[in-house]
Design a protein around this nucleic acid. Structure first.
Lengths: 212, 212
DNA sequence: CCTTCCATGGCACTCGGTGTCAAGTATGCT
DNA sequence: AGCATACTTGACACCGAGTGCCATGGAAGG
């Protein structure tokens, strides 16, 4: 029968079912949360609407918060991936700026989905905390990658952690401003402004230290 | 009798008792947490050791986390107060740097207390989240104060939020490095390095824009 | 056809946190 | 002094998140 095709497509049946349930759970949850608010939505309501047991919910998501915060994880992964893919010749600030550009792109692609989500995460304390935590680990990961690029020890040299942290701050401030203005302005412009104002000498320094 | 002395000291009896209970609660809790770890210490254990009821605990602390995170609040308050007290002539970066100096002082005063606490908060996820949340609101408060100083609108100009965020990042990176090195190095030197590396042009710009 | 594996559901339990009420105690007024 | 008032406390009940455990059922595989 399909034994051979199964070998070719290792994600069959069981795995597909898993994804289905997970997606269904996420969709239902986001819908409920959008209508009632996060704190007002209980796990029991979610699982009732999704038609699974309470126990199953916690097999798919480690916590109720995870279901909302997942999107941030994806964004972080995209940023990390882009940074890892930047050419090694590029300076750290430029590479990081480029990495955050893909995040901006992802946010501006469908603002009607991204804006409510960011608002939800800024306004709900529990979610905000988780968001900040994600930012924190992302900062460490970016710092590690920057250190790797430049052959530095992230435990000895403050540089990588500082560049990562400052970039994250710039990004965060830009996104917050963008959110406050209901996504009206150009997010990329805001990010450009934030990055250049946090790193006023970067361009000049890059020019000076690059081999002529 | 002491009726007159009571009038002179408006915080009498009731208030003193409150403080006593609160201190006792905090002391016992920190002791238990230091011995067993945070997650492993239940509120019931704390209240049993302190000799009060469970309900009373939550009248003094809004959550179990608060009992540990309080010290961060104090540090934040000190930073804010110092920033508010800086002379208006001082540039924003310099003022903020001075404000964080008092925090460094407070940390280095008794490292044998500060170090374990910071470690606890970095290593315990729930506490780390709360710590990051505190940092986040501190960032907003500092940004607001900076905006006030310079007559800017914190919702329109990215500057204040950026300066506050970058300073916080620098401070955080410095403290983390200091913690990693078991408080061996000079924290103030680390902060100096972090601040100057995140703001390489600040001194030059300040010199240039100051009236000759 | 039989076995083995895995997802699920149900259950009981822990723990953090809150609302409510009753009792005790200091304070203030007469 | 005596009484009314407000505040603190403790006890109880309750909720919601999260976990461990076990039984069941259905799919994959020999």
């Amino acid at each position: 029968m399909h034994t051979s095709s199964e070998a070719l497509a290792p994600l069959s049946m069981a795995e597909r079912k898993r994804r289905l349930v997970r997606d269904q759970l996420g969709e239902v949850a986001l819908h409920l949360v959008a209508r009632q608010g996060y704190e007002e939505t209980t796990v029991d309501q979610i699982v009732a609407a999704a038609g699974v047991s309470r126990r199953t919910f916690f097999r798919y998501f480690k916590s109720k918060e995870d279901i909302v915060v997942e999107s941030v994880s994806d964004l972080g992964a995209a940023i990390r991936a882009e940074l890892a893919a930047r050419p090694t010749g590029e300076g750290p600030e430029a590479a990081v700026r480029a990495a955050f550009a893909v995040a901006a792109e992802q946010l501006t692609l469908e603002p009607e989905k991204a804006l409510p989500l960011t608002r939800l995460m800024f306004d709900t304390p529990a979610l905000h905390r988780r968001f900040l935590e994600h930012q924190s680990v992302l900062q460490e990961e970016l710092a590690a990658e920057l250190a790797r690029r430049e052959g530095l020890d992230v435990d000895e040299d403050l540089g990588p952690a500082l560049v990562a942290g400052v970039a994250l701050t710039a990004f965060q401030v830009a996104v917050e401003a963008w959110t406050r203005h209901n996504g009206d302005g150009d997010l990329n412009l805001l990010i450009d402004e934030a990055f250049s104002r946090t790193n006023p000498g970067a361009a000049a320094r890059r020019r000076a230290t690059e081999p002529g």
